[in-house]
Amino acid sequence: MKLIQYVLNNYGLMGGLLLQHLQLTGIAILSAIAIGVPLGILITRYKSIAGPILAVSSVFQTIPSIAFFGVLIPFLGIGKKTAIIVLFLYALLPIVKNTYTGIKEVSPFLKDAGKGMGMTNMQILTMVELPQSLPVIMAGVRIATVINIGTTTIAAYIGAGGLGQLIFTGIQLYRNEMILAGAIPAALLAILIDRLFGCIEYKMTSKGLKGESI
């Protein structure tokens, strides 16, 4: 009851925090895609740097988020900028790794056939490798996004805003309805975004790869 009351009184605030949350996650994920996918492609071409790049990305992944924020605050201060950088670095590994794996798993015979029929390297990438590995790349983006929505709640701790702000304030004030007003939308957001990406992935994947008959 208290929760409903709280929501009715504070939907404006909650909406604002939700948008902020989306903004933090969105900027981090979009930049991680913009950098991660090309990086993933690049390391399939230069195998010698694949190991180090993937190793560095997984190091980012293993640092606990609070510690990561803590490490960066002395250099970047608190606030959105630091939060976005950490979120970005977190999102990077699943995207780079899945892009790398997806492209590496494309049958060498398909690439050979493409090259043998006169595709340029760029055409082999855009006409063969990317369409083939799209489901794997999209899976990476989904994982990164869901993790990111969760981690963004923690970013409120360093003053970046988002739904986490309600949770942390609620904890400090012992107000359960406030905690829930932050936690439930954050959880629903993660589920919804995951579904949405699932739909996009389905729409973008060729019917020929889904093993369905028309």
Partner: peptide
Amino acid sequence: PVEHRRNIGYVIQQIALFPHMT
């Protein structure tokens, strides 16, 4: 080489039709 290959047919054992294309 790219132009050259486009003027030569190529068939391989693994068939290698592109599964995502009709």
